[in-house]
Each structure stands twice: as C-alpha cells, then as structure tokens.
C-alpha cells in the first residue's frame, strides 16, 4: 500500500516536471512561431486579427519583398545588399580574430614571458568593455585611417575587440595541453611556428570551432558598431533591419518586418542548430575558468 502511493506520488512528480518543461518550451518557441507564421500571411489576414494561428493562405510575398524590395530610407533594395555587407564583414573578422587568438593563446601558455599574466589580464578586461567607452575615439581614428563608414573599418573594429575573446578561448584550451609535448618537439629541433602548426593547431580543432562560432555570432549580431560607424548603403544587416522595422509611413507591413527579422536571424540560428554544443561552450567560457 505504502509503496503503491509512493509510486503514484513519483508519477505525479514526473508529470509535473514534464508539463512544466513543455510549457516553458512552448513559451520560448512562441515568438519564433509568431515570426514565421506572420511572415507567411498576407497583410489583410494579419489586420483582420490572426495573430497566433496558422496562415489560412501561405504566401512568400513578404519574404521576397524583405529580401529584394523593402525600402530603407529612399532606397528600395530590400535586405540583400546588407546581407552581403554582413558576410563581407563577418568572414574576414572571424578568420583574423581566430588566427590571432590562436597565436596569442599559444604564446601565453607555451612561451610564457615575464608579465604574460598582466598581458592576459589586460586582454581579458577587453571582453567586458562597455563599447560606449571607446566608440568616440574609434570614430576619430577610423576617420583618420580613411576607413570611416566602410566595411573594412568594421572588420578592423571587430577584429580588435574580438581578439580579447579568442585569446581567452585559446589560452584556456592550450593550458590543458602538457608542456612536455612542446618541450619534446623543441628538443627534436622544431621551432616556434613548426610546433604551432604541427602540434598545437591539430589538437585545437574543437576550440577553433568554438572561436569561429562565437565570433560569427557576435559580429553578425552586432548593432552598436554598425550604427555608430556606418550609414546608408554600407550598414550591416542588423542596422538595415532596424531601419526597415522603424519605417513609419503608410500601413505597417508586419509580415515584411517579420520576414526581415527571420532573414537576419537565419545565419546564426543555422549555426546554432548545427553546432549548438560548441556555441554553448563559447557562451560559458566567460564563466568557467580554464
């Protein structure tokens, strides 16, 4: 009798846990659901009050408008050129900051020099810098370098502040590789770069993925640098999205807004779904010490 009621209690407990988890999941999925369904509805259906339901009539008109027809200011080019801008910004910024971060992590762990810890600490603070404290001088410097308002300028900015994160990732990873390994290679006559290329890099594959994914997400999702340093047709996609959404003239095209938001979100969502494990590792790197 006693065991029976205990089993029942346990089952009720499980039931409670699962219902709570599922309810929470629904809550977290709701905005995504609403974004996708709204983007597939014709505008009249939206204004007649269908918010949460499936579209009665599926149309990709809003998506094609968001991609190639929506107006930002006076230019009606859609998000396509800004998507391209973001790609042109993200790819070099990710590769540069990851490459430099790998070298820095290697030096900081295997070729320690006097003051290395201070150097590392100073870079670490850069991860937590509120960028508001540097945008004014950065704007001045970009102007003097002739890079203001351009994608190469944004690549430079993202590389500079990205190095702080990538150096942290690689430093905390390389510190787990035994020093004996590099010392033995040195005795065999391998030099600085040789050891880096043939011992460290092959071992660092997981952290290279973490670093690339983290930087990709950070740079793609950045808004502050984009809106501060670029304007007009040179802005990244986040700035363009914000401009589309804030158009105030005429009947508000919610379906185009949602399709635009989806277009801006898809690259990072895709990376997250494909490589979520590595994404989480990057996310928790600031909290879990190496």
């Amino acid at each position: 009798m006693a065991t029976k009621s205990l089993a029942r209690q346990q089952m009720l407990g499980r039931l409670f846990i699962y219902s709570a988890l599922i309810l929470l999941a629904l809550y977290y999925l709701m905005p995504l659901w609403v974004m996708v369904t709204t983007s597939l509805k014709p505008l009249d259906e939206i204004y007649s009050g269908s918010f949460i339901g499936l579209p009665q009539e599926i149309t990709f008109e809003a998506w094609s408008k968001a991609w190639s027809g929506a107006c930002i200011g006076t230019e009606c080019t859609g998000l396509r050129p800004y998507f391209v801008n973001s790609i042109m910004m993200v790819v070099p910024a990710v590769l540069l900051s990851t490459g430099l971060g790998a070298l820095n992590g290697y030096v900081l762990t295997k070729w320690r020099f006097k003051g290395a810890n201070l150097v590392f600490g100073m870079m670490l603070f850069g991860c937590f810098l509120p960028y508001q404290a540097v945008i004014l001088p950065m704007a001045q410097v970009l102007g003097r370098l002739g890079l203001s308002g351009s994608i190469p300028g944004l690549v430079l900015v993202h590389t500079v502040y990205g190095i702080c994160f990538t150096s942290l990732f690689f430093r905390n990873y390389f510190i787990t590789i035994p020093d004996e390994l590099t010392k033995a290679a040195q005795i065999d006559g391998a030099g600085f770069f040789r050891i880096f290329l043939s011992i460290m890099l092959p071992a660092a594959l997981p952290i290279i993925v973490v670093s690339c994914i983290w930087q990709f997400t950070q740079v793609w999702n950045d808004f502050l640098f984009g809106v501060s340093f670029t304007s007009g047709s040179d802005t990244p996609i986040t700035v363009a999205l914000n401009n589309i959404v804030n158009v105030t003239t005429g009947r508000k095209q919610y379906n185009v807004d949602m399709a635009s938001a989806m277009i801006a979100a898809i690259p990072t969502l895709l990376v997250y779904v494909v490589a979520g494990r590595y994404f989480v590792r990057g996310l928790t790197a600031g909290a879990v010490k190496g």
Binding site: Y28, T217, N221, V245, M258, A261, A265, T268, F279
Partner: peptide, 13 residues
C-alpha cells in the same frame, strides 16, 4: 536558441 539571435531580432519579434 534565443541566445543566438541578435537583440534587434528579439526586439522586433
């Protein structure tokens, strides 16, 4: 997954 989104996307949604 929301952590992978830009704050601009979150705000818009």
């Amino acid at each position: 997954y929301p952590m992978a989104l830009s704050f601009i996307v979150t705000g818009t949604a």
